[in-house]
């Protein structure tokens, strides 16, 4: 999605009032462009109508890959590529494979999921995020509205709506 140049930012200072405000604002049919909070607010994704994250599915798939890689690699080295007799133990000691298979499952799953998380969240060293308001990592809960090509009377309505719903501050911001 294209980032808007002109935005209206509403700031709240209490998460309960904020959650309630989102419900009211969305009920009015107003589109919320972005929502920023200093910590994970319980129930926020529900009031915003976000669907569940599918990260856990990715984690499961990476874990499956790790399990298959570990089991098949150990089987290949010990039965096909270079079978060795270790003190009369079987060439395919499946019980001995359990610890390493488990560790590889965890390793693949954790790394795969974390990398997916970084890519999806656009997080990488050197990424410069657009900062709507510095206090959103401190004590303010923000709602950002796209104000590009919105009539000024509509914007005034929006600002009033935010204030009515308990915002402590509403401001406009222009990015280029």
């Amino acid at each position: 999605m294209e980032e808007p140049n002109k935005v209206v930012i509403g700031l709240w200072d209490h998460e309960e009032v904020y959650l309630h405000a989102i419900e009211k604002i969305r009920a009015k049919g107003v589109q919320i462009y972005e929502s920023l909070t200093p910590f994970p607010v319980h129930g926020l994704e529900d009031v915003l109508g976000y669907r569940d994250s599918r990260l856990h599915t990715a984690g499961f798939m990476f874990g499956t890959v790790g399990t298959i890689v570990a089991l098949s690699f150990m089987t290949w080295t010990m039965t096909v590529n270079f079978p060795l007799d270790f003190g009369g133990k079987p060439y395919w000691p499946i019980a001995s494979f359990i610890p390493i298979t488990f560790e590889m499952m965890v390793l693949f799953s954790a790394w795969g999921m974390t990398l997916t998380y970084l890519v999806r969240n656009r997080l990488w060293p050197g990424m410069v995020p657009r900062i709507y308001d510095k206090r959103t990592t401190d004590d303010r809960f923000a709602l950002v509205f796209d104000a590009d090509n919105v009539a000024s009377d509509k914007l005034k309505e929006l600002r009033d709506l935010c204030m009515h719903e308990g915002a402590v501050e509403v401001k406009d911001k222009q990015f280029n």
Binding site: S53, Y117, N121
Partner: peptide, 18 residues
């Protein structure tokens, strides 16, 4: 160090899931 963290609702949702 923050990898460009913003704190959007979607980021937090994935953060909690992760």
């Amino acid at each position: 160090m923050s990898f460009g963290w913003m704190g959007t609702a979607k980021q937090w949702q994935r953060f909690e899931s992760l």
